[in-house]
Structure formats: C-alpha cells, structure tokens
Computed example of a mutant assay.
Amino acid sequence: MGYTPQDFTLTRKRAEIQIKRSVEVNKWNAQVECATGKDRKHQELNHYIETVRTRVLKIHRELEQDGKPVTAEILKNLFNGANQPPKMLLERFREHNEKYRALIGKDVVEATVLRYERTVRYLEEFLKKEYKSSDIPFRNIDRQFVEKFEYFIKTEKNCAQNATVKYLKILKKIVTLALTNKWMTENPFTGIKFKQTQTNRDFLTEEELHAIMEKKFDIPRLEAVRDIFVFCCLSGLAFTDVQHLKPEHITKDINGEWWIRKAREKTNNVCHIPLLDIPAMIIEKYRKNPVCLQKNMVLPVPSNQRMNSYLKEIADVCGITKKLTTHIARHSFACFALANKVSMETIAKMLGHSDIRTTKIYAKVLDTTVSKEMETMKNKFAI
C-alpha cells in the first residue's frame, strides 16, 4: 500500500502531485495510471484520479487563455491551493512603467520613462527568442537569465557596454522590487558588478563653433537648428532643458544682468547661467516665432531625432567631421568655460550638477590651455 502520485510532464520538466490516496501494488496499472480492481473502492479511486486530471487541465487552459506561461511547477503550485498565480516579470514591469509615466514632469523625465519602456520591449523579444514565452515568473529568474539577457542586448540590439549596463540596472531595480515584495527569494544579481567603460566625449573647438555660427543657411529648418545648437554651446543647456525653456526662465537680477534660471529636467537641480550676448540675440530672433508663441517656449526646438538628423546636414555643409549631436553642445560649453579660466565649481553650478565629479566628465583640458599654462616653464627652460 502507498500514496498514489500523479506525475505531470511539461516542457520536459516534471512535477509530482500527491493526491493522498492509496492502492494495493498488485491492483495498480502503471502504464495507464489507474486501478485495475472492479470493486467500488477501486472505481472511486479511478474517478478521483480523473477529477484531478480534469482540474489540472482546467488550470492549464486558464493560464493559456490569460497568456501566462505554463510550467509543471506552476500547475503544481496552483493545484495545491496557491491563491494567486506567480508574479510575472513583464506584467509587473508594465504596471511600474504606467505609474512612472504618470510622474513625468513631477519626479521623472520622459527620456527615463522611454528607457524603461524600451527595456520591457527588449525583454519581450528576449523571452520569445530564448524561452519561447511571453513572460516569466520572478522566481524563475536566475543569474543565467541575467547573463543571457546581457548577451542578447549586446548582440541583437548592438548596444555598447555602457548602454547595456543601463538596461541591466533597470532590470535590477524591478528585481529589487520583487525581492522586497517577496515575489522571489533569490537575488539573480548577487555577485554581478556593472563595469562601465570610460568614453571620450567629443566637443567643438572655438574655430569649429565659429564656422557653424558664420554659415549662411537658405533652408529655415537648418537655420533654426543651427541657432538652437549654438544657443546650447554658449549656455550649457541639455537638449531636454532647451526644449522646455520658457520665457519665465529668463530673469534679470538687481544689477540688470540677464540669467537663465531653470531646474534641470533630468535631476531637478537648478541651473544658474549668465545669458551671453549671442544666446540673448537668438532668443530675441525667435521671440515672435509662431511655434514659440503657441507653445510658450523660448525656441522652436524639434524632436531630438530630427535635431540630430539636421545637425548631421549642418556638419557636412560646414566641413566638420565630428558627429554633431545635441549633447556635444553641452560638452563644448564646459570645455569653452574651462579654457577661459572658469572654475570647475562655477561650471558645475551652471550645468546644474550637484557633484563636481560629474562636471569633470564633461570638462576637458584643451591643447591651447596646456600650451598657455606651460608658456612660463617653456621660456624658463628654453635653450
């Protein structure tokens, strides 16, 4: 005599369910999985076993109808009385992103939300390719899953190391949320260290900036993009900040000097930037622009994608081989300020950095600065 287990196999993985019924060994047919006795006791056992099968198939069908993954372990847990199906990665991730999107303009910027949503899309493609599934329970995520996803991002999405790290950090945040809520017990990121590579950020020389400023454009869209780019080069504003720059952000102090005072979209740190003559002229140029008036914005800034596309045209026309992007303007501003003996602390305040170490990433010592500062030493040791 012994308990009769029911064995269910799915995707080559097995899970046994003890139905807590017993039968004599010589009265059990293992091949057809039923009792062979003709009396009432054995017939009731067979009927109960069939009820168990029916219930498992019902759970299986409901999971499929809901588009949720089906594994032997999940079936077993639901059969044994689990009140809720296991918490799923993409299901919870999407819920998180919906809440995040509602916070745009309050605690987060749209670019951050878009990165989270892109991570979900990559995970969807990854799960279909590697696991033939539309979602995965949190408790099934292990270190191998993380490593495979990293490889997928690099190979299938052609992401460099630093971009890959950003997506992995986002996944880790969602996993941490799952661990906090006890949706999973093992941390798949234990022992994994994120290594970012140091990048050489491009910037313009003063000669290159003047070439762009002095170029005449017959196409209005290129002229506007050039003006916006120059404005960023001489103010240090990031693309999203200049895109949301409003007239109330341009203020005059008690000495009659004009300033840009605006909280950064990314960090909410306030930038304090003296308004130079050229940026002031650009503001005046677009003061009555229909787009600016309609949106209550200082400049008619297009989308980041269109902006970068037009900057490529401008670079070609001006004979500049560097890849012009909206962010190269911010780098250039930091370099110009440093070359003109502006302190790192002041540059950090203008850029809206709370940590001067962030500013040091932007600021590069130009060759002309090195040459000037070595002039005294050069003369002292001249032959």
Rank of each mutant, 00 (worst) to 15 (best):
H42Q: 08
D253L: 06
K378D: 08
D241C: 08
Q294P: 01
H96A: 03
P300A: 08
E156M: 09
C159L: 14
F152V: 10
K372H: 06
Q65G: 11
F79C: 08
L311P: 04
E257I: 05
C335L: 05
I260D: 02
N29P: 04
Y100S: 12
G256R: 07
I278F: 12
G105T: 03
G236Y: 10
L75T: 00
N181T: 01
A263T: 13
Q84M: 11
H249F: 04
E284F: 12
L177Y: 12
N140A: 13
Q43H: 00
D355G: 06
L90A: 00
N83F: 05
D142N: 14
S343E: 08
I136F: 04
E207N: 05
I228G: 04
I254P: 00
Y3L: 12
E147Q: 14
S235W: 07
A30H: 13
D316G: 02
K288I: 10
A102F: 00
Q161C: 11
E73G: 00
P300C: 02
I347G: 07
L114R: 14
L237E: 05
E186N: 13
K266W: 06
C318V: 05
C34R: 11
C232N: 04
V230F: 00
P69F: 06
N269I: 14
A72K: 04
T199H: 07
Q18V: 09
N83S: 14
K380H: 10
K372C: 09
H272K: 15
K173A: 14
F231T: 00
T54L: 15
G256H: 13
A339V: 01
L90C: 01
D355L: 03
G67Y: 07
K87F: 11
C34P: 01
D142W: 13
N181M: 14
N304Q: 10
L63N: 04
L90V: 02
K129W: 06
C271V: 13
A178I: 03
F231R: 00
E16K: 08
D316M: 11
D367G: 05
Y116A: 10
E91D: 09
R226N: 03
D277Q: 15
L222M: 02
D66V: 00
T267E: 12
R264V: 02
R226A: 00
V242H: 05
I153V: 11
A35F: 06
G2D: 12
F194K: 10
E257T: 12
T36G: 01
I17P: 03
T180D: 15
V301R: 02
L89P: 01
I17K: 10
K148E: 07
T251V: 15
S133F: 02
E207K: 09
V70D: 04
I219Y: 10
T346D: 14
E284V: 02
E98T: 14
L123Q: 10
V113D: 11
A280N: 06
L114S: 14
I314P: 05
